[in-house]
Amino acid sequence: MLPNVLSALEFERLTNASGPTGGRIVTRSTQRNRRTKEEEWVFDTDAPAPRSVAIIHCVGSRDQNHNPYCSRVCCMYSLKFAHLVKEKLPDATCYQFYIDMRAFGKGYEEFFERIKDEGVFVVRGRSARVEARPDGMVIRGEDIVHDRIMEFPVDMVLLAAGLEPARGAHRLASVLGIRPDDDGWFTELNYNTDPTGTNRGAIHVAGVCQGPKDIPDTVAQASAVAARVLGSVISGSVRIDRESVSSAEAAANAARLAGTSPREEPWPSEPTHT
C-alpha cells in the first residue's frame, strides 16, 4: 500500500553494504518488470534518497491490541537507524516518535544523547497515522512535550516492529517438551535464580527464544548455558534444581524420560498474533 513504509528488517537490508543498493538509502521507485510486464516497487540505486525519514517506535509492542510486552531492542535499533540515516544522508531530516526511550544498557543512554547531538528530532509521542496523499506521505502524531499535533510530509517511514516468537517455535517447544508462556516464548525455570534452565533438565534456553533481548544479553545467557553444559559433561550428570521444578512437572518429566505417559496438563495453545 505505502511503498516507502519499511519494516526494520527491510531497512536493515537496504542499508547493508551487500544489500540491493549497496548500502545506499533510497526511496522505492516503480519499475517495469520485463517478464510479467507489470509495474513494481523496487529499490533502485539511482532512485532519489529520502529527504526526511520518520521512525516510529513501539509498533505492535506494549499494546494490548497486539503484544502486551516490551520488545526491548527496538529503541536502540531505532536510534541506530537514525544514526545510519544521518551518517549516510547528512542533509536528511530524521524524526523519532517514541513513547518511552528505553536506553537501559551500558553506554546506551550516551548513544541516545549522541543521536540528539547529531540533529535527529526526537518527538515524545507515538505517531498513530501515516497517510498517502497525492503529493506524498504525511505522518501525524502528538508531540506531548510541546503539546501540539505534528503533521508533516515524510519520504520514508521506518516501523520499529516488536519481536514475536518465530513460526515453528511452538512446535519446537512441543517436540522438546519445554513449556512456552502465553506469548509463545520458552519458559525458563526461574527468571531470577535459574534463567537458563528448563523443566527438561538437560535442555537449556538462551537468546530470543526465551524472550526479547539484545545481543550482549544473548551472549551472556549463551555463555551461562555453555558453562552449565560443560559442567554436566564433566560431572557426567544432569543437575535438576528440585526446588525450582514443581513436583508435578518433575513427575511429568520422569514419566516422559521413562517414555511412558504423555503430559498430564494440557499443552498451552499457540498464541495468535494479529
Binding site: 513513547i99 518511552d100 509521542g125 505517531s127 497515522r129 501525524r140 502528538e142 508531540d143 499535533i149
Partner: peptide, 14 residues
C-alpha cells in the same frame, strides 16, 4: 501511559 495515539487518531485535534 501518554503515547499520544488517541490525539493523533482524533480528526478534531488541531
Amino acid at each position: 501511559y501518554h503515547c499520544g495515539n488517541c490525539t493523533a487518531t482524533c480528526p478534531f485535534s488541531g
